[in-house]
Every structure is written in structure tokens, then in C-alpha cells.
Write a protein that binds this DNA or RNA. Sequence first.
DNA 1: CTGTTAGCGCCTTCAT
DNA 2: ATGAAGGCGCTAACAG
Lengths: 324, 324
Amino acid sequence: METVGRLAGVSQVTVSRALSDPSKVSPATLAKIQEAIAQTGFVPNALAGALASSKSMLISALVPSITNIVYSSMVKAFSEEMRREGYEILLSETGFNAEEEEKLIAAHLSRRPDAMFLTGIHHSAQARRMLLAAEIPVVEVWDITDSPIDFCVGFNHAETGRAAAEYARRKGFAQVGVVSAGDERAQRRGDAFVREWERGGGGRVYRAFFDATATLANGRAGLLRLLEQGFTGGLVHCSSDLLAHGVMIEARARGLDVPGQIAVLGFGDQPFADAVEPPITTVRVDLAAFGRAAAQAMLGPLRGDRSGPAIIDLGFEIVERKSA
Amino acid sequence: METVGRLAGVSQVTVSRALSDPSKVSPATLAKIQEAIAQTGFVPNALAGALASSKSMLISALVPSITNIVYSSMVKAFSEEMRREGYEILLSETGFNAEEEEKLIAAHLSRRPDAMFLTGIHHSAQARRMLLAAEIPVVEVWDITDSPIDFCVGFNHAETGRAAAEYARRKGFAQVGVVSAGDERAQRRGDAFVREWERGGGGRVYRAFFDATATLANGRAGLLRLLEQGFTGGLVHCSSDLLAHGVMIEARARGLDVPGQIAVLGFGDQPFADAVEPPITTVRVDLAAFGRAAAQAMLGPLRGDRSGPAIIDLGFEIVERKSA
DNA sequence: CTGTTAGCGCCTTCAT
DNA sequence: ATGAAGGCGCTAACAG
């Protein structure tokens, strides 16, 4: 800035002002400064700016996995919203691991982000302590709790399982199965489905649980397991559309009709859900809305407005298509 | 650090040393300092550190889309590798837009990253200028050029199209079609396929081009378009596995046998490719390897070693399965 | 509208 | 092994 200022015949501060608030500088000097910037190829040092102003314009975001479309969709919508306000996103992957999350929180906090986007509501005690001490807005996305750190944006996972069980009952299925992946929230949905089904006197629930991530191959293997357990047909509740699709493929490969013999209920309403044959009946959650709501929630305090709601339940909806 | 130091009975510098290189501090004082840190909940300010040392330990990464598994897979592998060395990733989405990329490069550069990960080899002149002026290692991933800014890691896109056309010829298909999405590199693969097919005297190529991103629905619509043009059966070259899968679903929905009447060749070898029915014959590229190679390439100069190769062609391979 | 003076919190260099 | 001084590049007051 010093150099640019000399070239434009002004002091360093004036250059700073020209960049941060052009209206504070006369049009004539502004022009000279802009020319000097163009000539020198000057790029302001945001680190120094952040240090001096204690506003980094950096937002920290932690997701379990960036290759999982569920999380990347939320982050995408969130980023777009925040970038419009001039913020940049520091993104890392926790791998569904609380210890890893704790380390990442410490690492991110050392860069003095202005706010933090976290996935889920379970964090280590030490993590919560650091977050509280940092005194920045924290938004927990993809789940709901009565006691968020600052804000939470999501839906009730157990409720989706209950709704699915009701749906299965209403449709008159005699047998039901559950195929779910290792994610804690996925399990919670499956467990709630089982409880509600049993509560209604529905009898045994066939189950296939995978310790790993949801894949088509696991969906196929999942149906196989149910069949081996004696499942002869009915509705299969899956913790994701990908698993649901896998179940459908395996059913067809074995000559079982979908939904005639094997009906499938997915989760997520991912883009492919209504493009496959038959289109998948699924639990829809609006991922982009979660991202946008998270952005709006943190922008409140970031602008000094602490009046927004702390708990934002965006709900879900069962979309009935052909598969169940 | 001042405060921590006072608590531990040492000066601020000693605290700094204890954190950056514990071996430079005596075990006794180190213990005292660590206790003081635990008591105060001190979190070092990486901004100040970066400003003073001009090493931000920050890597800038720009991808067209974070929800696209192709890019997120590369970034995932890249991040893991860089994080092991203590670097953090500033990630943004360009939306396949060169202007947007230019703006993002400027924004990222102002945070003084130690290196930059870029997708593709086409950047605006102004972007190249800024990158050169920044004097940091730049790695361009997912494509190959003779004149990278610093390094490029990828494969020859046109070559995959040629190889696919040869494959189609070898298998004796009489008619071929191409379904491709809007990405410039996807088009390049499709164009090369068409040229090679025509060069070999293969006759007309039926084509369906989508201006948008690759989806299952577009795959289905793509086959429809080919059929409308008079395509009666043969091999369909798709610019992604997702499109290929869509073509397969549409074929089945119309009672066309895959691969008997409609054979399908995908691209990417995504995890689902061998889990669908029939498993998809596809062009495999090792996304994780690209990410790792990109990390290794930039870690060279970051450690002061300028001896590594500038152009890293990791190639591809056609994986023959049942769909073609 | 513009300049002056102090830091922001840390690292680097040079002493001790 | 530890400390003192200076500065990284910028912003925040406060003057004029």
C-alpha cells in the first residue's frame, strides 16, 4: 500500500480507505490510486487486514465427508449465500469422527474464523469449550436439538422413521425390512422406524446394517441379507436413496417385482430418485434450504442482530412415487 | 502468548518457540508453558503467525463444482495428503466459469496461500498474470498441457475418446451414438470419439448434447434423442457413468436389451458403475491418484525442491464389463 | 477529504 | 536455553 500510495501521490492510509470504502476518498485521488494499483498489480494482504481489524471474513465449515452429496449440497448452498456477503469458506472433512472434529475445530479456530458451520449436534466436551471460548456464531446443521451451541438447522431424524413406519402400515404391508448405513443419524432413522412398526403390532422387522458408507453395492447386499433372514417380500426402509436403488437393482436381478414383491422407501430425494425405474418413494429434505438457513442464521449475529430463532426445524416430507 | 508466558514465568518468545519447535525449549519450561496453555485455553493466532513468517500454511483450491463427485474425490485425496503436512484448504467453486475463477483467484490470493490447486488448464490471461506474480506453486489438475503454469496432473481427454472409438470398432458395432454433458472436457472426449469413428469409415454418429450437467435424467433423455434421430441400436458413448446409467435405464424402460441392442460405454468408473445391472463398461481414471499427485507436486517446491516433473500424465484405462 | 500515530499477535534476528 | 527489539501489512482512532 505504501508503494501504491507513493505512485498515486498519497499516503498509505488513503490507499487503504480507497479499497475498503471508496466513498471516503475523493474521485480524483481514487482514480489515481486505481491506476497505481493496476500498474503495480497490487493484491491487498487479507491476513494483515484481518489481524488489524479482527474480522477475517473467513467462515469455517466442517462436514463428515465432502464426497457425500448430502453434505456437499448443503455446503454449496451455504457457501453461495456467504460468498455473496464477502465471506470465504475454510472447509474440512471430519470423516464422521469426533476426535478428528475436535482437532479440526482447534486448527480452524486458530485462523480466527468469523463463524463456524458444523454438521450434527454431537461434539466433544473440549470442542464445545473451545467453541464457546471463541465467541463466534456457531451453526449446527443436519440435526435438531433443544440445546444448540448457538443455532441449529435441520429436522427430526427419528420422526422420519416414525412417519415411514406409518406409511408402511397405511399401505398395508405385512412384512418390513430396514437397510441402513453406519452414520449415527441413519441408524436413528432406522431405529425409530422399527420402534414405531413394533409399537403398532407389526411384528418382526428384518434388518441389514452396514458399518460403512451407503453405496449401491451395499444396497444390493442389504436385500440379500434380508432375504437370507427369511424376508419374503414387503417394504424395505433404506437410510438413503442410494441404498434404496441398490435394493431395487438386486430385486430385479433376482426376478422380484418392484414394488409388487419388494417395495422400497428411500431417503434424501436425491436427483436420481425420480429418474430411475420405478421412481423411488422417498423422504425429501431440502438440502439447499438447510445451507441457506444456516447462512441466514449466522449472518444475523455477524451483523449484530441477535434476534433470530435458535432452533430452525425445516422438516421433511414423504414423496410418494412408484417404488412403494 | 504474553499472558501465557507470564503465567509460566517466561517471555512471549519462549512460548512461541515452545509451540513451533518444542526442542528449542528446556523440558521444565515446556511443561510449565503447556500447563499455562491448558489453564488459559490459549489458541494461537495463525493470522498473526502467517503475517510474521509469510507462510500461511493455507492452500487455495478451486473446482468447478463441489457436488460433482469427480472433483470432490480429487480434492478429498488432495486435502488428506496436504493436511498430513499441516496445510489447510480454502475451497471454492467456480461453476465452470472463467470469469468467476478469475475473481476467486484474486480473492484467494489476498489470503496469501502457500500454493494453489486449479481444475483444468484454461484460465483467463489476467488470472495467469496474478498467479505468476504471486510466485507460489500452482498445480492444474484433471487435464494435460505442454505449457502448465507450474505443474499439471491429469490425462489426455481426447485420447479417451479415440480409445473408445477403437473399442467400438473392435467390437464390431455398426452404429454408434454419443451422449455428452456441457463440460468442455466432456465435449472434447465426445468430439475425439466422433472424429476417430469417422476417420475409420464408421459412418454417421448420432449425437445428443446437453448444455447442462450430467444427470440420470439427461442420460434417459439422451437415448431418446438418439432414437428420434434414427439410431436403431449399437454403442452409445457417454461422457459420464451417470449418463451411461441413464441410457441403460431408458433402454430397459423401452424394452431394449442392454447390451444386446443398446451397448453403453461410460466414463469415470464411479463406485456404482460395477454395481448396476449390467455392470458398466467404462473409462477408468484414478481420481484419488490425481489428488495425491497434485499434493506431491506442490510439496516439492514447498520444501524447496524444484526437481520434480512439471507434466504428470496418469493415463486412463478402459474397463470392460457387461454393458458394452 | 487526508495524514499521523498506534497497535493487531506473532516470528526473526541478534544478543546474552 | 532464553530475552529484547523490530517489523510483517493493514485498520482504527484521532487530528487537521
